[in-house]
């Protein structure tokens, strides 16, 4: 497995760049992963990333996009729980990019 070095410590990622060990995650690593994805993190980005981490903690899976938008809509409001908002934040897909930055595995059912 490839290793990456962030803030003087090295971490294992898979061949697609997803963090191997969820427990390794911290803000520095999130920053590094975001840079790799060419995403400039704002408070709005962090809100989604933190939401995903909470979802994973509760259910032990990364949600499908459809499920994510519904769950965000419920918690943060319909103006955030929609594809347009999420794709503006994460142009290459909230599942692919936000999950990666959140240190989660690829969403179950992602082909």
């Amino acid at each position: 497995m490839p290793m990456v070095e962030v803030a003087g410590k090295s971490f294992e990622v898979d061949e697609e760049g997803y963090l191997t060990n969820l427990a390794d995650w911290n803000q520095d690593i999130a920053g590094y992963l975001a840079q790799e994805e060419k995403v400039e993190m704002t408070d709005s980005h962090w809100e989604v990333v933190n939401f995903l981490r909470e979802y994973y903690e509760e259910y032990q899976i990364a949600p499908a996009v459809r499920v994510l938008t519904k769950a965000i809509s419920k918690k943060l409001g319909a103006e955030k729980g929609n594809n347009k908002y999420l794709y503006e934040l994460f142009p290459y897909g909230p599942a692919k990019q936000a999950c990666k930055i959140a240190g989660l595995p690829k969403p179950t059912g992602c082909i």
Partner: peptide
């Protein structure tokens, strides 16, 4: 191992 019993509670959202 992963405690996937929690995941059954996500089914409703799916």
């Amino acid at each position: 191992v992963k405690d996937f019993s929690k995941t059954y509670r996500a089914l409703d959202g799916y």
